[in-house]
Amino acid sequence: MKKDYLLLLVVALAAFALPMILPGDYYVEVFLFMGINILVALGLSLLMGYAGQISLGHAGFYGMGAYISGALSAHLGWPVPLAALMALVATALVAGLIGWPTLRLKGHYLAMATLGLGIILYILFVQLRSITGGASGLAGIQPVHIGGFYLDTPRRYCYLVWALVILSFLFSINLVRSRTGLALRALHYSEVAASTLGIDVAKYKLQVFVFSCVLAALGGILYAHYITFISPETFGFMYSIKLVVMIVLGGMYSLWGALLGGAFLSLLPEFLHRLEDFEVMVNGLILLMILIFLPGGLVGLLQKIGEKIRGHS
């Protein structure tokens, strides 16, 4: 368990060093977007690995963060922190409204409900033209600044993103080690037993789900205020799927799976420029292959390799 904090320290140092070492803005930007993906994936990993529930609408929550914060800053000129806070609160409320009826039930109703919500949100991003700019997108989103200091270069913004990634990981690791984490792990293995020990199963699932959606929204906010222009296709169903692929690829039962999976899938398009039309299918194939041949994901693989090395020495 101490190991997790040590690992996080290593990641933090790497995140501090990389923007300075990387050879150009392009690579820094890749690293920046990787951070955003990992942030969103981290929330989903808590939901899938600890509450045992799937969300197929995380792209929608990601979009809610981006659009609410973006629109408030672009149309009404709200300062970024206030707009961001508003976006986080609104996302938490919507997540609560969806999660409350579905998470009380046994089974996987949340997956279908979030799938539906993701579709609805996408329709809204396209249809509410006066707010979202419709299919042509929303421009004029304010960049982030602290007083007169503008975080408008990839390098500066990258530090903001990764600082939040590290803090979110710290929070999540703490959480898993706390009473709440104990309860979450318990209900993952047996809801019945957990409930007879005084654990309000639905409440804990709901808390994780809402937290998970808030992290997704935070990712969206970071994305919107960096790019300063957003359009609906970024927040479509395929991104929700990609997030699920990240978690499964990285390893469902460890928070570090979100880091590895998120990093891997963020880099994949850089290596496979000509993927284009095949990308959809490749995502699905990765998902199936990992489930069948490597159910523990990359983290599981690394653990096995680690055990082998230790076993031989």
């Binding site: 929070f171 706390s178 709440t180 104990l182």
Partner: peptide, 19 residues
């Protein structure tokens, strides 16, 4: 066995995350 003692604890989600 620790989970068994759940009812004698009370800290919430945020408290847990902030350790």
């Amino acid at each position: 066995v620790m989970i068994g003692g759940f009812r004698h604890t009370s800290s919430g989600f945020m408290a847990g995350g902030l350790s």
